[in-house]
Each structure stands twice: as C-alpha cells, then as structure tokens.
C-alpha cells in the first residue's frame, strides 16, 4: 500500500495519542487490573508505530510476545497477589506521590534533553519490504552465536522460573510486622473437592 505522507502523519498522531493516553491511564488508573489492560493497549499502539516504520516483523513480535504473553503474565501476577490496598497508608500517600512526581519529572527532563540534543541521523535509503527474510538471513550468518546463546538464555529463564515458582520455595513463615506477599496455594488433596453446584430441581 502506498500511503501518502498525510495518511501516515494522521495515523502516527492517532497511534501516539493511543500510546500516551494508555500510558497515562496505566499510571493513574486506581485499579491494577485496569492498569494492566491499558498496558496491553499501549503495547498494541507501539506495534502500530513499528508497522508505520516498515518493521512488520517487529510489530508482529510485539503483539505476539508483549500483548499475548507478557501482559497475560502481568495480569496473572496481579490476580495471584490480589491485595486490596489498605486505606491506612493514605496519610503518607501525599508525600510519596510528591517524591515520585519529582523523580518522574527528573527522568522525563533528562530524556527530553537527550532526544533534543542528539543529532538523529535520518537515512535516505528506501526501506526494505521483506524484513523478516533479511532477519532470518542475518540470524544464520552474522548473528549465529547470539542466536544460539538466546536458546541457552531461554533455557535458564525457564529453569529459574520453575525453581522460583515451585511450592517448596514459597515462604510460609510470617515475618514480624509487615504483611508478607503471600502466594497461597491449597494442598493437592483439597483440590479435588470442587464446590458443587446446587441441584436443579426440574425448574426449566
């Protein structure tokens, strides 16, 4: 599709609005579950931006991994812990928000400073259409060793995740004072007795 410059500009504006609005929502949403879903929206918008930059493979990978896997993992983590935020800490929240706001302003300022100062080189070459093919060729010629190292890294991540998530490493002793983040798990014997639905007595 040969998009005109105007169409690209408009789509960029819409996508940037989606990403920025979603990111603000992630920070400001009172419910963590809503924040996680908004984060998914941000990832989808980022994927659209990649697509506008002719990076179709990166866009697809963004949807597949970030929206399909990482965001689901985040949602699971939120629903696993599921702590209602107590209102007792509301008194300190003002000070905390002020400090966090200053830190965020500092980070934002330094990022803007960097973006403005760096002379971004703009390539005048025509972008390639079949980037997936080119990535595949590069994987097996120039980036062969990193490609294999990635499999080792994934293996380590898998083994580490299983070791960390297994039940014998779940702390069950409560430290004095602060409430620990509990990862509750019922023992296996109890898992069998699922709550029975009440019998329907011919009322249909």
């Amino acid at each position: 599709m040969n998009l005109g410059e105007g169409v690209r500009l408009v789509s960029f504006g819409i996508l940037a609005l989606i990403v920025l609005g979603g990111a603000l929502g992630v920070v400001l949403a009172p419910s963590m579950v809503h924040a996680a879903f908004l984060l998914g929206l941000v990832f989808v918008g980022m994927s659209g931006l990649y697509l506008l930059l002719n990076a179709d493979f990166v866009a697809a990978a963004q949807i597949l991994i970030y929206v399909g896997a990482v965001n689901v993992l985040l949602l699971f983590a939120i629903m696993l812990v599921n702590r209602r935020i107590p209102d007792a800490a509301a008194g300190k929240r003002g000070l905390r928000n002020t400090i966090a706001g200053f830190v965020c302003l500092f980070v934002f300022g330094s990022l803007v400073n960097g973006v403005v100062r760096v002379p971004w080189p703009i390539s005048t070459e025509t972008p390639i259409a079949n980037s997936t093919l080119r990535i595949g060729e590069q994987f097996f010629s120039y980036y062969l060793l990193p490609f294999e190292a990635v499999s080792i890294l994934l293996l380590l991540a898998l083994v580490g995740a299983i070791i960390l998530a297994r039940r014998e490493f779940v702390p069950d002793r409560t430290e004095s004072g602060d409430q620990p983040l509990v990862l509750p798990e019922r023992p296996r014997a109890e898992m069998d007795e699922t709550p029975k639905l009440p019998e329907t007595t011919g009322r249909r």
Binding site: V72, F76, N82, L154, L183, P184
Partner: peptide, 19 residues
Amino acid sequence: WIQFNIRYYMFALVFVIFD
C-alpha cells in the same frame, strides 16, 4: 475478582518462554 492459583502462573511462565 478471585485469587488465582499459582499453578496458572507456571503455565503462563512456560508459555512466555515458548512464545
């Protein structure tokens, strides 16, 4: 909004790796 069992989290972890 019920609390999920940690077992689902294990599936999600393994799924991310193979994704």
